[in-house]
Amino acid sequence: MTVGLFIPCYIDQFYPQVGIASLELLEKLGCRVVFPTKQTCCGQPMANSGFDHLSEGCNKNFVNNFEGIEYIVCPSGSCTLHIKEHLHYKEKEQEAERIRNNVYELSEFLVDVLQVKNVQAKFPYKVGFHSSCHGQRGLHLSSMSETMQPAFSKPEFLLNMVDGIEISHTERVDECCGFGGTFSVFEEAVSARMGKDRVAAHQKNNVSYITGVDMSCLMHLEGILKRQRSDIKVMHFAEILNHG
């Protein structure tokens, strides 16, 4: 099975270890992984800021990079959702459509496509799970507190396979962290306040780490944790699943 690894730009630039963990994990689980090296960004930062009309260049580049690759897998719910909902490229619209239908966030790929039953990983820490909105409410990676449906969570299903891990949930289990892309700077006051509230909720549970499916949310929380000189670290769930 060939998997095209789609690495969001901010992971590429700031959190290469998440890309490495995703790649190693997929290889361990038997996939042939390719990484088209000319990828840049999915275009979401522009689109969510109202500039979807400027994302043409990104779209073109994205389609050209992932053309013909059977599965496209990304360690970010938010970027995956953006591609699923908004990838269009007039000259290769059919291929764009195929990509939209074949792009997966990492946990949904592992659970739904690979149907992973166990991972060889050990992580003997108390970990707070942060539910990222786009993955949860957009891609339905887990049940949502607002809707009346049976509880499930694809990323936690996987994390529970890790030896020694203790997963904890906060009050307001799926409240947004306030990152919101450029919201984090244009609405700085509210964004930071939301982040601080999330951090405080995890601190209450005495966790050592906060994890989740989106490094962007975690980057925001990390910024707050570091400013507060907290000992709590953030770690992408792929890193935990790949932790020996």
């Binding site: 909105c133 786009h134 957009g138 947004c176 919101g180 919201f183 609405e187 509210v190 964004s191 939301m194």
Partner: peptide, 9 residues
């Protein structure tokens, strides 16, 4: 419309 994180709740 920008006073939102688009969290979807």
């Amino acid at each position: 419309p920008f006073a939102s994180t688009l969290c979807g709740s």
